[in-house]
Design a protein around this nucleic acid. Structure first.
Lengths: 139, 139
DNA sequence: GGTTGACCTGGAGTGCACTCCAGGGTCGAG
DNA sequence: CTCGACCCTGGAGTGCACTCCAGGTCAACC
């Protein structure tokens, strides 16, 4: 087997932060807050070592966060996953509810975006007209 | 002319709240914070009377908010509009920057949504398979 | 052996966008 | 004249999601 000495088995928190885009503080905060599936394993000196699975989970969390899921709900979801098999229906419900929310917000933002683009158009026209007026005056 | 007695000329804050979807407190907060184009005019008894123009402006603010513009930027924009004609280029720049932000966020959320839908699919499959197993067992 | 750097903990502090509250005025209905 | 509804002000409080800090451990390098 290719296991020379005791392998490191996981990356330190600084690298976990770099890979997930979260800050070191946020990673520790997530753990304290029960958002992770387990306490992150420690090295002999008490330093956290994030496994690939830990990182994948944190990445899922960042996706949920980026789509507006509150910490509270992520905690609930983490608790369900920690509880193990048997509550898939509940997890599915949670995810579906979140998708509804995201879709609704997406639609709302898109609609407001229309109004903003309209506003931009108005300014563009006004500025173009002003430029035209200057051109005419200087002629 | 159809002006029977002194017309009310504007709606009270409760109605402004109902129309804009903001709370009464939020409306007062926006005003204190310099987000409005002018101090809202008052009735003889000191109560605010929102004109149609005031309401239109607040509605624009809610659109900007709903698309994630921070209060600070709305204040800057309000200041530009208050300053009057001549800074249209700056206003346009502000709006364009905001549009960029909204489009970026929209793209990001849409991408994450894909991952979430995938997750939903996984749960759906798992649950369907479990149901199938139960059916087979009971047969 | 001293310094540096990465990490640890518990807890305090921050920024944002409201939200709530005490204390008070005005007005119309009963 | 009292009551309730509506509004006012200044200021304190809230919830969220971090972020920062003091004080400390440990390993490695000079």
């Amino acid at each position: 087997m290719t296991r020379p000495r005791a392998a490191p088995a996981g990356v330190p928190i600084a690298e976990a932060a770099a890979r997930t885009g979260l800050s070191i503080d946020a990673l520790r905060y997530y753990e304290r807050d029960g958002l992770l599936l387990r306490p992150v394993p420690r090295s002999a000196t008490g330093h956290r070592r994030y496994s690939a699975a830990d990182l994948r989970w944190v990445e899922l969390l960042t996706r949920l966060r980026a789509t507006g899921m509150p910490i509270r709900d992520m905690r609930r979801y983490a608790a369900l996953v920690r509880a193990g098999a048997g509550n898939e229906a509940e997890r599915l419900e949670l995810m579906r509810a979140h998708r509804r929310l995201v879709l609704d917000r997406l639609a709302e933002v898109t609609e407001h975006l229309g109004a903003i683009e309209h506003k931009i158009g108005v300014y563009e026209d006004a500025l173009a007209e002003a430029a035209e007026a200057r051109r005419a005056a200087s002629a």
